[in-house]
Design a protein around this nucleic acid. Structure first.
Lengths: 215, 215
DNA sequence: TTTTTATTGTGATTCAAGTAACATTATTCC
DNA sequence: GGAATAATGTTACTTGAATCACAATAAAAA
């Protein structure tokens, strides 16, 4: 399964909603391709792969597309997540409006530091001891890891054991799914690693290389 | 030029520093490959591409590798960035220790909201009017965009015009370099887009698909 | 009704990243 | 010093994602 297709789906949808707001009803693979910077053929292939079908001459119905994409992205189920590690980044994510706007709800935060625990906040911050019960009870499947590097694997293990299947990891340590704990039991999960420092380093490489060439 | 190589470089380096701290002096492409989950051949290819050379039987010198990688990542120049948009995410990034730990300094934040402006903070938050002068004077080349979607392209244009070459964009709108303003002048820059909601949606797709199969 | 046209849906092709394989060459050991 | 070994450095191969190109077909036009 290809992560890129799904990321494109999110982008299609965002664009489709804007087009709909402008009053459009139909859209062509050309339009979507232009906006995303890919070829129309790829747009059609994406839809084909996802069993979304269009009309030979009239393009695709925007409403239908949005509906189908919502379906595929699981937007009909509740999108509840937890955030583990309520430091700078974790707290910012919990309060970030961009998630709510896409229907994603932070059910709770968790932190090992008792001073950060707060049961009565808008989004509660709970102690780590409660995480397993919480995950199981609320059937949470997706979690964000925003703890320091040194705690990342331990936190991953706890979350994984409690039933989290999808991880968004902000610690600079690349987590891999294959670390099934008990011998062979290779836990099937998905981890998206976001390494902020590395992303910036990447940019610095680019800009430095660029100026070096010109001097 | 391949972004992935540079991201791997950051990972190599992080690992190398740990190995060095443990007292190791030499490392083999095998070791690095195992840790990063790639083949040893790719590690050697990366180094070969970057003109880093090892010893036919003794592997690579850790010190030398770290030094070379620092060189390539531009760690000998100052790594100063600005953060434009001091909302939740922007503020968190400005205070995030993980950047300083990798030698990256936030020189200033910028915001259009006068209430957020603060000249005397640890990291000053300046009004947007000052951004162009600041960028030019301090020769800033890398900037983070953490403004709402509606302001993203305008902010990009301002930053680009003032001389920013590398962008880390957190707005859900995919920015593209090719939008050279004045007609043809295609500005050569690099943009890394990070779409948090899309990353999470991606995880939800995965976990939903997974449970659907099993039920 | 027939022809034209515009767009989809998909098989063939391209391209680049990663893997595999091996020739090369320091180092070690006799 | 010479043989064996263990790693690099590189060439050839594989794979998969994106593009290209075109056949199929629905809508529009004549």
């Amino acid at each position: 399964m290809n992560k890129e297709i799904i990321l494109r789906l999110s982008k299609y949808k965002r664009l489709l909603q804007k087009l709909k707001a402008l009053g459009l009803e139909r859209v062509f693979s050309n339009n979507l391709g232009d906006a995303l910077g890919v070829t129309p053929a790829l747009v059609r292939k994406d839809f084909s792969f996802l069993k979304i079908t269009g009309n030979k001459r009239g393009g695709y119905s925007i409403d239908e597309l949005i509906h189908e994409i919502d379906d595929i992205l699981g937007k009909n189920h509740p999108l509840d997540i937890i955030v583990v590690g309520c430091g700078k980044i974790g707290t910012a994510l919990m309060q970030y409006n961009g998630l709510a706007r896409d229907g994603i709800t932070v059910a709770a935060g968790f932190d090992i530091n008792p001073e950060r625990v707060n049961y009565s906040g808008d989004i509660p911050i709970l102690p780590m001891e409660e995480i397993e019960n919480f995950i199981k009870e609320k059937k949470i499947k997706v979690g964000v890891i925003t703890v320091p590097e040194s705690a990342a694997t331990a936190v991953y293990d706890i979350m994984n054991k409690a039933g989290i299947k999808g991880f968004l990891n902000f610690s600079p340590l690349d987590l891999k799914c294959t670390r099934g704990l008990d011998g062979e039991e290779k836990s099937d999960c998905m981890i998206n690693n976001i390494n902020l420092a590395a992303e910036l380093e990447n940019l610095f490489y680019y800009v430095n290389r660029d100026t070096e060439n010109n001097e």
